[in-house]
């Protein structure tokens, strides 16, 4: 190393202000709509939305996608979105694009009114272009998608220069049963890795980890929670899948609470998740003064980090609304 090099190294690359600016643009924090609003989320976080079916999980993802793709300010009008690209990997194949459009329209009309239809359509298209979608019908397609995602993001970065994506996976356990039953044809040497549930998830986590190192992204994943039934079945299944990865006593508490959710994801996945929120339907039907129909209420609770706050929300045409 020459003297000049050393000098320039000591001088430092940038001022604190420039660094802060750089970090804030390249590793932004996301302020997301309810029920994800309680905790500030940053890129490289992995959020798991767990809940039995139906508990409005896909709805929450769609709502989050809406506020992510909508620009913050456009043509001098404040829309209050994040203006960031969304990647949606659909393993359940139940995403409804028309629902996304419906909710985006609601938001745009809220700001603009119905007056400028052409302008509204333009902003809708602009936002929708930020949304990328892929469906996978089996684990191979998921792995192939993740393996080639780096190249795709790299290309995008070169052409647009935007980072800070939001990556969504709906829902991570979709191929659980298929992978558990899968077998590989015996072929070749002994050192060949065989395909199994464990291996697939290990490599999914590994690929995601590597992607997160290079491309700043916030990952939001849904997981269908399986409600454990009472009696022998719980005991039997519990023995089969000990819920590891949650060493705190909270899992102990959860087990006492009703209903009991059975953890079926391997520990490698559980240690990959940095935030976990539980959503479930509540038995209350809230009579809303505005609409004649009763809305079904859902309850959300942060499990990781544990916040002792229950948020109650309802889903209407315009999206998710907090009620308490």
């Amino acid at each position: 190393m020459s003297e000049a090099d050393v000098k320039s190294w000591i001088n430092g690359d940038e001022s604190a202000k420039r660094m802060l600016d750089r970090v804030l643009t390249s590793r932004p924090s996301f302020s997301l709509p309810p029920p994800l609003h309680r905790i500030p989320l940053r890129v490289a976080n992995v959020v798991e939305i767990a809940g039995p079916s139906p508990s409005a999980k896909t709805q929450i993802l769609t709502q989050t996608a809406v506020s992510c793709v909508l620009p913050k300010v456009w043509n001098g009008v404040h829309y209050g979105g994040l203006g960031r690209p969304v990647l949606y990997i659909d393993l359940d194949c139940r995403f409804d694009v028309l629902r996304l459009v419906e909710m985006l329209r609601h938001r745009i009309v809220q700001v603009n009114g119905c007056s400028s239809t052409a302008g509204n359509e333009e902003i809708l298209k602009l936002s929708m272009r930020q949304f990328s979608y892929i469906r996978c019908y089996d684990s191979f397609e998921l792995l192939a998608t993740l393996k080639t995602l780096h190249h795709r993001l790299q290309k995008e970065k070169e052409s647009n220069g935007i980072g800070g994506h939001l990556l969504m996976i709906d829902s991570i356990g979709a191929f659980h049963w298929v992978d558990r039953a899968s077998t590989t044809l015996p072929l070749g040497g002994k050192n060949r890795k065989c395909l199994s549930l464990q291996n697939v998830l290990e490599i999914v986590v590994e690929d995601l980890r590597k992607l997160l190192l290079i491309h700043p992204m916030l990952v939001i994943v849904t997981k269908t929670a399986i409600v454990g039934t009472t009696g022998n079945e719980v005991k039997r299944n519990f023995k089969r899948w000990p819920s590891s990865g949650t060493p705190d006593t909270s899992s102990e508490l959860e087990r006492l609470q009703k209903p009991y959710f059975r953890e079926y994801m391997p520990s490698i996945w559980q240690s990959f998740v940095t935030h976990r929120i539980l959503v479930q339907g509540s038995d209350d039907h809230l009579a809303m003064p505005k609409s004649q129909e009763n809305d079904l209420a859902y309850v959300s609770e942060w499990l990781l980090p544990r916040l002792n706050i229950l948020d109650k929300f309802v889903v209407r045409d315009a999206g998710v609304f907090l009620v308490s």
Partner: peptide, 12 residues
């Protein structure tokens, strides 16, 4: 091996 990515406008 995977399906092509599509953007929101194409989906719509």
């Amino acid at each position: 091996l995977h399906r092509p990515w599509s953007n929101g406008v194409e989906l719509m």
